[in-house]
Amino acid sequence: MTVLVAYNETPQGKAAFAAAVEESERRETNLVALVLTPQPNDAPIPSQLGALISAHGKDVDVSFRSDKIDVADAILDHAERIDAEIIVLGARKRTPVGKFLLGSTTQRILLDASVPVLVIKAGE
């Protein structure tokens, strides 16, 4: 089984990665990072993610989201593909208008995931 972290280069992504490392160590399982910024799969690992991987000393498989699939679908599909036992996401605060006008990726994942989802807020 595997821990999947949905990663982007934001404070939320950094917090989610740290939580995913802890979760994978607690569960004694693999860690997979899905980079949400669309890139070809042979792209280099983003610099901030590379630094986080080095700092935590954890082997991490890294994949990239295709620009042909939306974020929530990419996360859900990847979780299914790798047989993830948990999905770790970073979250940010949104205004009431933002919640009304924009669909929530986090909400879609929480409702549609077939495995538990751990949502982490970044420190402010």
Rank of each mutant, 00 (worst) to 15 (best):
residue 44 P to I: 00
residue 22 E to H: 10
residue 13 G to Q: 06
residue 78 H to M: 05
residue 124 E to R: 15
residue 113 A to W: 04
residue 66 S to Y: 14
residue 71 V to L: 11
residue 6 A to N: 08
residue 101 L to G: 09
residue 39 Q to W: 12
residue 65 R to G: 00
residue 31 L to W: 06
residue 123 G to A: 13
residue 86 I to N: 00
residue 60 V to F: 06
residue 76 L to V: 06
residue 6 A to P: 04
residue 27 R to D: 04
residue 67 D to G: 12
residue 89 L to D: 01
residue 21 V to N: 05
residue 17 F to W: 09
residue 19 A to Y: 04
residue 64 F to M: 05
residue 43 A to F: 15
residue 42 D to V: 09
residue 108 R to Q: 14
residue 19 A to G: 05
residue 101 L to E: 04
residue 4 L to H: 02
residue 50 G to E: 12
residue 11 P to I: 04
residue 10 T to D: 08
residue 41 N to V: 07
residue 81 R to A: 12
residue 46 P to M: 04
residue 72 A to D: 13
residue 27 R to E: 07
residue 56 H to N: 11
residue 38 P to G: 06
residue 41 N to F: 10
residue 117 V to F: 10
residue 91 A to K: 14
residue 117 V to K: 06
residue 2 T to G: 03
residue 35 V to T: 04
residue 40 P to K: 11
residue 79 A to N: 02
residue 71 V to I: 13
residue 112 D to I: 01
residue 61 D to V: 11
residue 23 E to H: 13
residue 115 V to K: 04
residue 46 P to L: 03
residue 112 D to N: 14
residue 20 A to K: 03
residue 60 V to K: 03
residue 45 I to F: 09
residue 117 V to W: 03
residue 67 D to R: 15
residue 83 D to F: 08
residue 89 L to N: 03
residue 76 L to G: 03
residue 18 A to K: 14
residue 124 E to H: 15
residue 64 F to I: 04
residue 80 E to S: 13
residue 27 R to I: 00
residue 5 V to I: 06
residue 50 G to L: 07
residue 88 V to Q: 05
residue 50 G to I: 01
residue 31 L to S: 03
residue 26 R to E: 05
residue 65 R to V: 00
residue 109 I to K: 00
residue 41 N to P: 15
residue 105 T to E: 11
residue 91 A to S: 15
residue 12 Q to Y: 10
residue 74 A to K: 02
residue 32 V to S: 02
residue 53 I to K: 08
residue 123 G to R: 15
residue 58 K to V: 04
residue 59 D to H: 13
residue 105 T to L: 06
residue 45 I to V: 15
residue 15 A to R: 09
residue 55 A to F: 07
residue 100 F to I: 12
residue 69 I to C: 00
residue 41 N to E: 13
residue 9 E to W: 07
residue 95 T to F: 11
residue 123 G to V: 09
residue 74 A to H: 07
residue 48 Q to D: 13
residue 13 G to N: 10
residue 9 E to F: 09
residue 71 V to Y: 01
residue 83 D to V: 07
residue 121 K to N: 14
residue 107 Q to C: 05
residue 60 V to G: 02
residue 1 M to A: 11
residue 72 A to I: 04
residue 76 L to N: 02
residue 102 L to Y: 14
residue 54 S to R: 15
residue 30 N to V: 02
residue 79 A to Y: 00
residue 124 E to Q: 15
residue 68 K to F: 05
residue 95 T to C: 08
residue 48 Q to Y: 06
